[in-house]
Simulated assay, not measured.
Amino acid sequence: MVLLGTIVNGAAIVVGTLVGTVSSRIPERMKTTIMQGLALVVAVIGLQMAMKSEQFLIVIGSLVLGGMLGEYWNLEGKLNQLGKWIEMKTGAASEGSVAQGFVTATLVYVVGAMAILGALDSGLRNDHSILFTKSLIDGFTAIMFTATLGYGVLFSAIPVMIYQGIIALFASQINQFVPQSLLDAFIAEVTSAGGIMILAIGLNLLGIIKIRVANFLPALLIAAFLVTCVYLVQTNFL
Rank of each mutant, 00 (worst) to 15 (best):
L199S: 05
V213Q: 11
A119S: 12
L232V: 13
I137L: 15
S122V: 04
R25A: 13
L136R: 07
V108R: 02
V22F: 11
W73A: 15
L206V: 13
R29A: 14
E87Y: 07
S53N: 01
G96N: 04
L199C: 09
M30A: 13
A219Y: 09
L226W: 02
G202W: 04
G83Q: 05
L107E: 00
I201V: 14
L238N: 10
F186K: 05
A39M: 01
L232S: 13
A12L: 09
V2T: 15
A99H: 00
N236F: 10
F186R: 07
V153L: 01
L238V: 11
T106R: 12
G202F: 10
V41Y: 08
A171H: 02
V59K: 08
T90D: 05
R25Y: 03
M35Y: 07
L120F: 13
I34R: 00
V44C: 15
H128E: 02
D127P: 13
L206E: 02
G207W: 04
K78M: 09
E54G: 13
S97V: 06
I201G: 09
N126S: 11
L206H: 05
L169E: 14
G5T: 00
L79C: 15
I7N: 08
K78F: 09
K31H: 12
G91T: 03
R29K: 03
S192H: 07
L226M: 08
A115K: 00
A39Q: 01
G66P: 15
P179L: 12
G91D: 05
A224P: 12
V19L: 04
V213W: 05
S53Y: 01
G152N: 04
P218D: 06
W73F: 14
V42W: 03
L199D: 14
L232I: 02
A12E: 07
